[in-house]
């Protein structure tokens, strides 16, 4: 269950005055069971890339494979592909339309041709998975808060039982509480259902905390594709791409530059705290003896 992109490029409005190159020569493998962060400046090609994964866009050059099969090769059903590779867009307002939450989540499974009972079972499971309480099932999706809408939108895709779930900025516009809850639930999905997650985000702090691998896009090219520690060690290059490492990375580098031998690879506040304490205490103990 992997996605593979080979020499993929994408041009908008090819052959016209508005021609614009969004992606160029992208080679990328998304294997099973990974939690991947996709970052890039606005206009770096992120949105184009995720739409290539599930065949919403057709590459203007190169090939996209799902399980080794070229998805534009002829006998691949892209409708089936889209239920295997789920994509949740940034604004839940773009997909919520039914009279109540439960019916809305049933939309995907019904489109897959599942019978009423199975669709309902899937919808219920998906809603539970993202933490939407049962008393909201009968409510209109338009009355929900931003965070709840986002969960229902995710459930709407999750109910199709995808093997790969791509989330475009799932935390945009949420307050810290809502954001942490959603991210924790996404991580739980990854852990319990074994779903591959591709998380598109602007927040380096979120990415650093949750993902196993980071893909950095810069002006249509893959700039880095590595584990978070190594990607953030390029924090100066990231800045030139209009991105930044988590604040913590900067603090640790500044300390190191000022002669405090801390570990510059830490990713979270807790790790940083422990490391600084250990270094400072070690030093203090050194003075005492």
């Amino acid at each position: 269950m992997s996605i593979e992109l080979k020499n993929v490029s994408y041009l908008y409005s090819p052959g016209t005055a508005y021609e614009m190159r969004a992606l160029e020569d992208i080679n990328l493998v998304i294997p099973e069971h990974q939690f991947i962060g996709l970052i890039g400046h606005t206009g770096s090609g992120k949105s184009t890339l995720i739409q290539l994964f599930n065949g919403l866009l057709k590459p203007t050059g190169g090939q996209v494979f799902y399980n080794g099969e070229d998805i534009w090769g002829g006998d691949v059903s892209r409708k089936d592909l889209r239920s295997q590779v789920g994509l949740v867009f940034q604004y839940p307002e773009y997909q919520l339309f039914e009279v109540d939450v439960f019916k809305d989540v049933c939309f995907g499974p019904r489109n897959q041709g599942l019978d009423q009972e199975e669709a309902k079972r899937r919808a219920r499971a998906a809603l539970e998975h993202v933490g939407v309480p049962e008393e909201l099932f009968g409510r209109s999706p338009f009355e929900l808060s931003g965070g709840q809408k986002k969960r229902v939108a995710i459930a709407g895709v999750l109910a199709m039982d995808p093997r790969i779930l791509i989330l475009d900025e799932p935390t945009a516009g949420l307050d810290p509480r809502g954001r942490d809850e959603i991210l924790r639930q996404i991580r739980a999905l990854h852990e319990t259902r074994g779903i591959t997650i591709v998380l598109v985000s602007h927040s380096m702090e979120d990415i650093a905390r949750y993902v196993q691998r980071i893909v950095v896009l810069d002006r249509g090219h893959i700039a880095f594709d590595d584990d978070p520690r190594r990607v953030f060690s390029h924090y100066r290059e990231l800045e030139q791409m209009g991105l930044a490492a988590p604040q913590i990375t900067y603090v640790m580098h500044d300390l190191r530059d000022r002669g405090v031998p801390v570990d510059v690879d830490v990713l979270t506040v807790e790790e940083a705290r422990d490391n600084i304490l250990a270094v400072l205490k070690g030093k203090g103990a050194g003075h005492a003896t």
């Binding site: 739409q51 599930n54 919403l56 409708k79 889209r82 239920s83 789920g86 994509l87 949740v88 867009f89 773009y94 997909q95 939309f107 995907g108 489109n111 897959q112 709407g156 895709v157 199709m160």
Partner: peptide, 9 residues
């Protein structure tokens, strides 16, 4: 696109 991703036709 969001609805096609949910299997809409």
């Amino acid at each position: 696109k969001a609805q096609i991703a949910r299997g809409a036709d």
